[in-house]
Amino acid sequence: MTRALVLTVLLINFANSFASAEGLTRERYNWMLNCQGCHGAKGQATAIDTPVLYKQVGRFLNVEGGRKYLVSVPGVVNAPINDAEKADLFTWIINVLDPEHKPADFKPFTEEEMTWGRNNPLLIGAQKRRKELLKLMDEIE
């Protein structure tokens, strides 16, 4: 009985994964291929000290320097997709993973911002900068 149930769930999962893919957006596709391996499907994985994005990433937009920090962290600047698609992906991440913290005057990310991030990568100082920004967030929240 248990085996049959497990098999049914597996088959349903399989069918769902094949079916849901039909409506896949470019943003979600880029997320799956470039981000979710380490961040987890919902941006909650912390297995290799990857920061939690789910219900967290939007907070960075509420402090000065937070937006620039997001576009220049290593995982972002090294992602092998072009800047225009990366900007769309970022906007998608905010809207889907953390709409609660999205500022009222939120503007979608732009290609130029992503290019700036690649030209100013935080390859060494990302963790230090993150701590500074988290401290700022704690002060205003």
Binding site: F14, M32, G37
Partner: peptide, 29 residues
């Protein structure tokens, strides 16, 4: 993030590698 030589046993109780599965996430664009 795109390398298959890495042992991906992270977030698990044990980091001892046993085997690998291939899960379909969706149709690629």
């Amino acid at each position: 993030q795109s390398n298959n030589d890495i042992i991906w046993c992270f977030g698990t109780e044990s980091q001892a590698y046993t085997c690998t599965v291939g899960i379909v996430l969706g149709v690629a664009l």
